[in-house]
Design a protein around this nucleic acid. Structure first.
Lengths: 218, 218
DNA sequence: ATGTTGAATTATGAATACAATTTGAGATGA
DNA sequence: TCATCTCAAATTGTATTCATAATTCAACAT
């Protein structure tokens, strides 16, 4: 049991931030939708103050846009935003891979390898949702292995902004096969702890993802 | 006169975020200092609501920490944070350089070159504050030339977190000379639009900066 | 029918009020 | 003297209220 943490109850606005962020990322709150304060307050059982605080935070992250005197709406996933965000995510993942090669424990790498095998199985079974979930787990595990909280924080922020694009666009089967190929190389680089190569592979992987999304959304 | 913009008045909390961020970055609000709500409200002439909203946003950025029921305090600049943040800033600047080489107008590059000459002058005059300011201007101009708002947003957030370290540590003269040398190469790569090289130079430059800070703070 | 106007309604931005927690000074006792 | 306890004052977290801007929609003119 952890005795160093001062036993702090999470404040309402913090919980709201995480819950709203989840709702936005998984599409419960749809892009472009207005966020009616009163309604949300009632369904969540809180007053407007903490809800509005949470909206300010999410606006700062880019998940909602505040229109003065007209309230908040969930930000739209635009092609411009994806084209801006993906290269940034790409270099962040590249850095994460490089750090993970240097810092990950053998156990962590083994666990990531295991998840890769899961993911490959899901690919062969043609199970996209399970594949996506495994994919996310892998990227998150890699980020954790990099042991850089600042990196992780910004990665989370950016991921939440683009994750929603997946709901809008199913990439082609051919791109899917390509992505799986890339992941084979990624895993190999991680297992040999070839940081420079993993960085390049991850950066390229993310940039390819953007290209695929572009195609799927046009 | 611009008639396309819908004439929107900036909300209080937005102005507070920028003003408080500035105050924190330039050290007016010192690291570790408590942020007394009442006092700030009076001196800023606003009520607690928008101030608290701003504090939530700054907390999300990592500039302040919220202690439940005990208010906010300016976050401390720790070595762990610098070691985490600098590599991230390094890859972001690298990306910015790469993009700037591809996208900057000749005029923009000329302006950055001009600021470089300013900066070199300040170095020769031994004027550190002016040098720092010119340095910041250069990095900001480069970021603007990259034309990637997501990149710029995250760069701003991260810069504000580490900028404060400069107030705590004066780097050595020898490192200063090194940094100036590096900037000569950086400018050359930008002027020849050698994106790959500029990326490497900027990433290395930032990582060297961290090493110098480490030395100066130990 | 179509479009415009403007009062009534609603929603938002900000201030204030209230409740819960922390802080700190002084009392109490060993 | 020192530690602990008590309780008031101050500070924070949340709710509510107030003022203002936006929206709606019925009445009207074209």
């Amino acid at each position: 049991m952890n005795l160093s943490t001062p036993l702090t109850r999470p404040s309402l606005h913090e919980e709201l931030v995480t819950r709203l962020r989840e709702a936005i990322v998984q599409g419960t709150l749809e892009p472009g939708a207005k966020v009616p304060e009163r309604e949300l307050c009632e369904s969540l059982g809180v007053s407007r103050t903490p809800l509005r605080e949470a909206l300010k935070v999410l606006a700062n992250e880019g998940l909602v846009v505040l229109e003065s005197n007209r309230g908040a709406r969930v930000s739209n996933v635009t092609m411009e935003e994806l084209e801006a965000a993906f290269p940034v995510i790409a270099v962040l993942e590249g850095l994460a891979g490089e750090l993970a090669c240097a810092r990950a424990s053998d156990g962590e790498i083994a666990r990531i390898a295991l998840r890769h095998r899961d993911m490959f199985r899901h690919y062969e079974a043609g199970n996209r949702p399970a594949y996506f979930q495994a994919n996310r787990d892998i990227h998150d595990a890699l980020m954790a292995a990099a042991r850089n909280p600042v990196l992780a924080q910004h990665y989370t922020m950016l991921s939440s902004r683009v994750e929603r694009a997946r709901l809008l666009a199913n990439v082609s089967d051919s791109r899917w096969a390509e992505a799986v190929e890339e992941h084979h190389d990624i895993l190999a680089a991680l297992e040999t702890r070839d940081g420079a190569r993993l960085r390049e592979l991850l950066t390229a992987h993310l940039n390819n993802k953007l290209a695929a999304l572009k195609k799927a959304l046009s």
